[in-house]
Design a protein around this nucleic acid. Structure first.
Length: 253
DNA sequence: AGGCCGATCCTCT
DNA sequence: GAGGATCGGCCTA
């Protein structure tokens, strides 16, 4: 076992989290099944006495090497390595890896222990801790970046807020906070060092996936983004029409 | 020991 | 729409 971040709740932070924790069994099946069911669930991170949370609106499934045919785009394709070993462990754990030297992406492990497979989180709709997310992303009014203005759509529709959450920071836009696999990690404050291996269905965990009863409407199914193998497999799932889904061009069927 | 490259993001044209 | 940043991990020799 290499590093396995087990950050535990030491305050009453977990009690503030919306909804209920998912069960391990939810994740102990094929990523193809888990991915669409994950839409609408809430990723919640208790950090520095505050809760950052976002509703999952876009995901991709990556299949384990036991699958026929095997998925050449998956990190688990060539078997377990120090980097990807979380994928071969028990379901419901965070697999956080670094990419391009500067970013992180977060997946959730699926299948029973011994079998790999995961769901990549590609976009969230901010639900709580939005001002801190803006700071984490270096966006106005906290950052210095001048505000250019490609199509900025203010989010007007919010999910349940955590008590005391001030809402979206003026100048920042929900899309820019969590619309993209690395953007959402940055906004949520997720890193490989701190969160790889974190158990997302442990009530004592600082990082959890929860169900607050929200149900997504129509689900958009498309090929996965940014890969070079198995480019036409329909394993990307998104909430149709949600402004926080990444890339306007990616909204097509 | 060295080379290659990525499940990305941002900026500029 | 294209290219650069930037580095850990994995593969080959």
């Amino acid at each position: 076992m290499e590093e396995s971040a087990q950050v535990k709740v030491n305050s009453g932070a977990a009690e503030q989290l919306p909804g209920r924790l998912l069960s391990r069994g939810f994740f102990e099946v094929s990523p193809e099944e888990v991915a669409p069911r994950l839409l609408g669930k809430v990723l919640a991170h208790a950090v520095d006495g505050e809760v950052l949370a976002g509703r999952i609106v876009e995901v991709e499934a990556y299949l384990g090497p036991h699958h026929q045919p095997p998925d050449p785009a998956a990190h688990s394709y060539r078997g377990a390595t120090p980097r990807n070993q979380v994928l071969f462990g028990p379901a419901g754990h965070a697999y956080v890896y670094s990419i391009y030297g500067r970013y992180f992406c977060m997946n959730i492990s699926c299948e029973v222990e011994g079998r790999a497979g995961c769901v990549l989180l590609r976009a969230l709709e901010p639900v709580a801790g939005v001002e801190q997310m803006a700071r984490n992303r270096g966006l106005p009014p906290y950052g210095r970046r001048p505000v250019p203005s490609p199509q900025r759509v203010k989010i007007t529709r919010w999910g349940p807020r955590v008590r005391g959450d001030p809402g979206l920071a003026a100048g920042a836009v929900a899309r820019e906070l969590t619309s993209g696999p690395s953007r959402l990690c940055q906004a949520m404050g997720l890193t490989r060092a701190a969160h790889n291996g974190c158990d997302l269905v442990d009530p004592a965990s600082l990082l959890q996936v929860r169900d607050d009863g929200y149900s997504v409407g129509e689900v958009l199914v498309t090929p996965r983004i940014g890969i070079h193998e198995a480019i036409d497999w329909p394993l990307r799932f998104a909430q149709r029409g949600n402004e926080c889904v990444s890339g306007a061009r990616n909204q097509r069927e």
